[in-house]
């Protein structure tokens, strides 16, 4: 139990600290790296809570895809971040007002207790019981059976997205020289090499075909 608590605090402190560093650090590449660190630690927190599937998804999707994409953008595009940040202070009052209003509204909602959401029974019951199967297994059990229709539908959407990206952006470039493996393989020394007998001392008139 004590180990769990220690681990929790270590992970939580690192998560919060790297979260702060994401917005505080001056170098955008460092920002993204801190973001990745924050993701990894949050994944650890999920594991502590017994949500191992979410932890995996967090690492695979957020670290593997999103964060790396960020890194690409930051490193490939020459964005001047200090220039972007220059006008920040002038928007601060407006942002603060919006934030305060939102906060006040939230406090009002919860303080007056006017929302009494009657959560239907079915929503609150974990199905199947968490003690019997793990998250991943439970998801796998229904994803390819009960929700196969939606799974396939989502697959089609992704396929359309891929086709669309190719249709709208791919251009066949004519000036590139492509490697033609068949031609390379078919070449033999007879066709490729010409032997010329040039006598020594004579200024040969070498002519390529």
């Amino acid at each position: 139990m004590i180990i769990e608590t220690i681990v929790f605090y270590v992970l939580a402190v690192v998560t919060v600290a790297s979260g702060v560093m994401v917005i505080a650090s001056r170098n955008p590449v460092q920002s993204v790296l801190f973001l990745i660190l924050a993701f990894f630690n949050s994944a650890g927190l999920f594991v502590l809570m017994g949500a191992e599937f979410l932890a995996m998804i967090l690492v695979i999707v957020y670290v593997g895809a999103v964060a790396v994409l960020f890194l690409f953008v930051v490193m490939m595009l020459d964005i001047n971040f200090s220039e972007l940040r220059a006008g920040f202070l002038q928007y601060l009052p407006l942002g603060a007002i919006v934030g305060v209003i939102l906060l006040a509204e939230l406090i009002l909602v919860f303080a007056t207790g006017s929302i009494d959401i009657h959560v239907p029974e079915v929503v609150t019951v974990a199905m199947p019981p968490a003690a019997e199967v793990s998250n991943t297994k439970a998801l796998g059990n229904i994803l390819y059976t009960r929700y196969a229709y939606l799974f396939q539908g989502a697959g089609f959407i992704l396929l359309v997205a891929m086709v669309g990206a190719i249709v709208l952006t791919h251009r066949r470039r004519v000036e590139v020289r492509r490697q033609k493996i068949a031609e390379q393989v078919a070449r033999d020394p007879k066709a490729a090499v010409v032997l010329k007998d040039i006598k020594s001392g004579e200024e040969g008139t070498w002519k390529s075909d």
């Binding site: 229709y149 939606l150 539908g153 989502a154 959407i157 359309v160 086709v163 669309g164 249709v167 709208l168």
Partner: peptide, 23 residues
């Protein structure tokens, strides 16, 4: 509701692409 969304998105995404087809 989920089936509705999946069908709608499949349709809409294809339509966005064909609208921009003459790129």
């Amino acid at each position: 509701l989920i089936a509705l969304y999946v069908g709608l998105e499949l349709q809409s995404l294809s339509l966005y692409i064909v609208a921009a087809f003459r790129r």
